[in-house]
Amino acid sequence: MNRPAAACLAACIATGTMLTAAAAATVRFRVVDFAGKPIKDAIVYAVPDTPLPPAKPRTAIIDQVNRQFVPQINVVQVGTYVDFPNSDNILHSVYSFSPAKTFVLRLYAGKTEPPVRFNKPGIVVMGCQIHDTMIAWLLVVKTPYFGKTNAAGLLVLHHLRAGRYRMHAWDVSMRKVTASRPLVVTAGGPPRQITFTLKAGRMPRHGPTMPGMSAGMGMQ
């Protein structure tokens, strides 16, 4: 009972904010480590408590340039197609054994392979069969509100509808998304700033372990 009331309140606040601005709110995020150092490329996303209407599928691109995935760290909404073009003049074979999405693209060059649809939330780690150093992370989230921090660890999310959210922050060094906090967005009012302090921030020396594969054989 309480929950609807709180949600309502939060929505009000958010709506109020949005109402005062453009019927939507902007939230500023700052992600730092325990030392207060800003974390770059941390992914922050906000999941509204109220389920959103299904979105139209979109397509994202993870290019392969100079034996690197570009960008390395990605975030998409569930149901998004990701295209893996090969911009190198050598062959790559992209694969993922992550539980969120397991796939193997045969060796190819250029843009011959079809895009891969990620319809399960979770962390997907992709590599190249040929080049072990090529690693790309793709966080699949159930919200359209997400983004990556810049070099200053800052991210600004616009157009957040007023309402209640659960805010999450994740860095590639983290085996799973653990940092979360509630957020009530009200329309109008000054932009809010939320700071996340993450434990992560450093890559393990010999590479990160596979997210979501900590137990059992790694298979869920």
């Binding site: 596979m210 594969m213 790694g218």
Partner: peptide
């Protein structure tokens, strides 16, 4: 064993 990150 890496796939591509260490899985075991």
């Amino acid at each position: 064993v890496r796939a591509p990150l260490t899985i075991g």
